[in-house]
Design a protein around this nucleic acid. Structure first.
Lengths: 200, 200
DNA sequence: GTCTATACGCGGATAGAC
DNA sequence: GTCTATCCGCGTATAGAC
């Protein structure tokens, strides 16, 4: 077994950090090389240009999140359980690897203009998985007949923004930062999404 | 009355579009000048450099959204009415002027690193207004005692992502795009946020 | 006040030595 | 395979004519 794999992971990790922090056009190839501890020429030799770097990083991140979601969902039986599991795994994933939510928010902000085709597919796959869960819940009778698309954006929009702002919120208002850890985020959201805010 | 105001508005409108589409580092000053129908030197003469352009655009956008929110809230009496009004006005505003939600999502993605101080203040003000509405609802007894921060991200995360993806969704799946117009978005979200998804 | 022409640095990409 | 040195275009910013 060669060391190639390990090096590639190091490079992609460095690139992921830089892209997550600065976005595609803001990210600097020099800086990615520096973070990875190699020189720029080597980076081009191993992976390719900036676009290819971005593409690889996105695909890896999306696959990671999707796989984690599928695995978590497999272990559940009822739709509410599935919702909880999905919230938990997405929050977990978004917290430990900022890249995928960061990319998705940026691409949403920019109308998907800079997203490579495969990245768009990946986004659809994530969203379809969420949609299908809603549909299942409606069919099994545990959910009201809500619009899957609305719910899917409610879930991703909230989880992503809460996860990504956790540090910022802790810094800006230490007294009442709101949910910070993945489990706090998942629990707080799960409650509101399932039961709503209106007292009954 | 001079024509200065009109020209400045034209420039800021052009800049807002460009920043919304490409983000700060992706935006091109040349392109902003082209869109505004003036040459670059004139743009620097009238407004200033790229950062100043960005700052002005952000402040104007945040003020517009905040003013609209306050105005809509004034006309309401109960907390649920206020939630509905706020969803409506934010969705309306986010649809006709992509910049503010776009900026906020990008800054969330990048941990607020490129946001000028006044822009951060503006974000807090928007969020505080939402928070106070929740607190009011809890105190008046119409809402369950939910966490204001969670709700505030649930609202903004969902409204922003739904508004910004409206066109994308219509393009990608014309059969079931989900809520597209501001009123569709506000209504769909209002229902889920108030009542939850669990059948009872 | 308005515009053309240009300076200048930054950053992506690669040639070529080893 | 690895690294240094360098190219070159692009984009911000401004000098200077009118």
């Amino acid at each position: 077994m060669s060391t190639k794999k390990l090096d590639e992971k190091t490079i992609l990790d460095a690139a992921a950090e830089e892209f997550a922090e600065k976005g595609f056009s803001g990210a600097r190839v020099d800086e990615i090389a520096r973070r990875a501890g190699i020189n720029k020429a080597m980076l081009y030799y191993r992976i390719g240009d900036k676009e290819e770097l971005y593409r690889r990083v996105i695909l890896r991140g999306q696959k990671g999140m999707h796989d984690a979601m599928l695995k978590a969902i497999e272990a559940t039986h009822t739709a509410p359980e599935t919702v909880a599991a999905m919230l938990a795994v997405v929050a977990e994933n978004a917290t430990e690897n900022r890249l995928t939510p960061s990319i998705m928010l940026r691409e949403i902000a920019g109308n998907g203009k800079t997203l490579p085709d495969e990245g768009l597919q990946g986004m659809r796959k994530l969203m379809d998985t969420i949609s299908s869960m809603v549909t299942m819940g409606v069919e099994e009778g545990s959910f009201r007949s809500v619009d899957p698309v609305t719910l899917q954006f409610l879930v991703t929009g909230a989880v992503f923004t809460l996860s990504l702002t956790a540090e910022m919120r802790r810094r800006l208002s230490p007294e009442k930062p709101g949910p910070v850890t993945p489990s706090e985020i998942a629990e707080a959201l799960g409650d509101i999404i399932c039961n709503g805010i209106v007292r009954r």
